[in-house]
Design a protein around this nucleic acid. Sequence first.
DNA 1: ATTTGACCCTGCATGC
DNA 2: TGCATGCAGGGTCAAA
Length: 271
Amino acid sequence: MPELPEVETTRRGIAPYVEGREIVEVIVRQRSLRVPVPSDLESLLIGGQFGELARRAKYLLLPLGDRTLLWHLGMSGSLRIARVGDTPKKHDHVDVVLEGSNILRYHDPRRFGFVDWLQGSADLDTRLSRLGPEPLSPNFDGQRLYRLSRGRRAAVKTFIMDNTVVVGVGNIYATEALFMAGIDPRRAAGRVSLERFERLAETIKTVLAAAITQGGTTLRDFVSGTGEPGYFAQRLNVYGRAGEPCRHCGLQLRQIVLGQRASVYCAVCQT
DNA sequence: ATTTGACCCTGCATGC
DNA sequence: TGCATGCAGGGTCAAA
């Protein structure tokens, strides 16, 4: 489910209901997530209140006192606001009950997500310390892509999905950005020119910003913190459209596998 | 050092 | 209708 725009949509959706509200109860129904739910989660949360919610890559950071909770939604996770009395559904694994009867409720059928304490500062936690720049920050540009890609034989699509290069670019938006930039996803990263990487960095920023504006992409089950679906799916040009005509030239879009992920592209428009 | 593959888990679409 | 198979938005780790 969630790529960067969906995580950002979630952060914005839940923040007003969560920040500064006292935590009165924590209910964990399933401790076996990708990382086991910490045994001290309940005791450390109850009575505290979260500070300002932040996002780094696809991680949500929820500061609480001198600690920070790190929450990752994996492929099928969602965090949304429920009310006390709303019956938990299957795969509603964690409830953080807040003063005022709102609940921060975590749902994750595949359990690839996790909630864990950040180990020390973000600089010390190896889950965060090796991450590349945020795609929407000025630190990320075509120069960086060009510099890091020299000599790399991996496909350019795989390259831009590498978290040490740039974070938050998952399969949907990598596919879309490459289409918008007119670059063949199979092309070796080391054989993409600076000029084309400048264009690609721009299309990555454009597509992510547009998706955030639309509240993310709902393919099957993504909902924002307040329960609404995202509307970016209607804007997708290539992802999920294999066999359908290219919106630009009309040729049938092709699907291949790169780095074990489905990749759709137009053989005419992307070279 | 880069790159590939397996793996974590459930649900859904597809085809027989 | 039932069953088997393959595939899915992510990330980590070991091995090649």
